[in-house]
């Protein structure tokens, strides 16, 4: 196998892992923000109505 294969594979894999980390961070953050908004919409987070 040519050296190009090893170099390209290394860079593609690194790019995929880093992009994966960024996507995971963005998606996870959105899920938590949405869930929190839903809970607060049901009045759960409000101090006055807790009990």
């Amino acid at each position: 196998m040519s050296h190009t294969f090893f170099i390209a594979f290394s860079y593609i894999l690194t790019a995929l892992v880093v992009i994966g980390l960024i996507l995971r961070a963005v998606i996870d953050h959105r899920i938590q923000v949405r869930t929190l908004a839903e809970l607060e919409a049901r009045g759960i987070g409000r101090r006055s109505r807790r009990g």
């Binding site: 953050h29 923000v33 809970l39």
Partner: peptide, 17 residues
């Protein structure tokens, strides 16, 4: 870390609910 703080808040509120 920001997401984890939100996740813990979600957890606390879910338990409260």
């Amino acid at each position: 870390m920001r997401t984890e703080i939100l996740r813990r808040r979600v957890r606390t509120l879910t338990i409260l609910e």
